[in-house]
């Protein structure tokens, strides 16, 4: 198995103009963009166990440098994000070289996403994982009134830091509904229940690739991932779509579709 450093060199030699990955600078992990093989950063690159939504940086890089090609280190979730972002016309997969990392058994177990590995694995061994459904099952066992009380309690801790949105690899809008004063009153903490959170949940529907960074980032420990996971289950159940799976098939919420789709939905 080759190491990351030699992969970076190889990709730069083979036509990528830059390699985007993470580096470890005296214990601090941060994104690194390596543009030539002599870069001192090359000594610091590592796969590590940190995660970062590199796709967000790529959106800007691809726009800023329309004639450049980028290689990027991707875990399963990063790859799903890029696939979905390409259908939303935010990244151009043709100008990207994906270097896949499979999450370790410990990472996969701790994260619990559906597919903790990318389609092409250059580093690491593929392991399967099972998404945790405890929170969803718990919520679904409650009555309507109890469910509302449960979520109200969870969301009462929200300090409206926007961390969930800011870390989210799938959030790229310039104008965000969460900053629309008619929907989310400025200066009110916690934000109105359930508007703030349902707006985010809806915007994640058919889009969230279940990386779990939102929940990791949330300083209030709100089980956001379970909410967005449930939205993807609804999406799969009603409209037979799961974000990040196919590079061609687009979210049914992003185009009108056909009468047959609606007949199926109404059954």
């Amino acid at each position: 198995m080759s190491d990351l450093k030699s992969i970076v060199r190889e990709k730069l030699r083979d036509g990528a103009d830059a390699f985007l990955c993470l580096k470890n600078e005296e214990g601090t992990v941060l994104p690194a963009l390596i543009t030539d093989a002599d870069s001192p950063d090359l000594e610091l690159v590592e796969v590590g166990d940190s995660r970062y939504p590199l796709g967000k940086i790529l959106i800007d890089l691809l726009r800023e440098y329309p004639d450049k090609r980028f290689a990027v280190l991707v875990r399963g979730c990063d790859e799903r994000a890029l696939v979905e972002l390409s259908k939303l016309e935010q990244v151009d997969l043709e100008r990207l070289v994906l270097v896949g990392v499979a999450c370790s058994a410990e990472e996969a177990a701790a994260c619990g996403c559906l597919r903790p590995y990318p389609s092409d694995i250059a580093l690491g061994e593929k392991v399967e994982a099972a998404p945790g459904r405890e929170v969803i099952d718990e919520v679904e066992s409650l009555s309507d009134a109890e469910r509302m009380a449960w979520w109200r309690e969870q969301f009462s801790r929200c300090i409206k830091c926007y961390g969930c949105r800011n870390i989210c690899p799938m959030c790229f809008c310039k104008d965000c509904a969460l900053e629309e004063p008619h929907l989310v009153e400025p200066g009110v903490i916690p934000p109105d229940f359930p508007s703030f959170h349902i707006i985010r949940a809806l915007d994640m529907t058919g889009r969230c690739i279940d990386c779990g960074l939102c929940e990791e980032a949330c300083p209030a420990g709100i089980p956001l991932r379970s909410l967005y996971r449930k939205m993807q289950d609804i999406m799969e159940d009603k409209l037979e779509y799961r974000a990040g799976e196919s590079a061609e098939e687009r979210s049914p919420l992003s185009f009108l579709g056909s009468e047959q789709d609606i007949e199926k939905l109404e059954e």
Binding site: R147, P194, A201, K238, L239, S258, I262, L265
Partner: peptide, 19 residues
């Protein structure tokens, strides 16, 4: 078509939150 899709999803989402 969009109406049917959107509100089919929204109703389920509201239900999950207890409405």
């Amino acid at each position: 078509y969009m109406t049917a899709k959107r509100f089919g999803v929204l109703r389920e989402a509201l239900k999950f939150l207890g409405l």
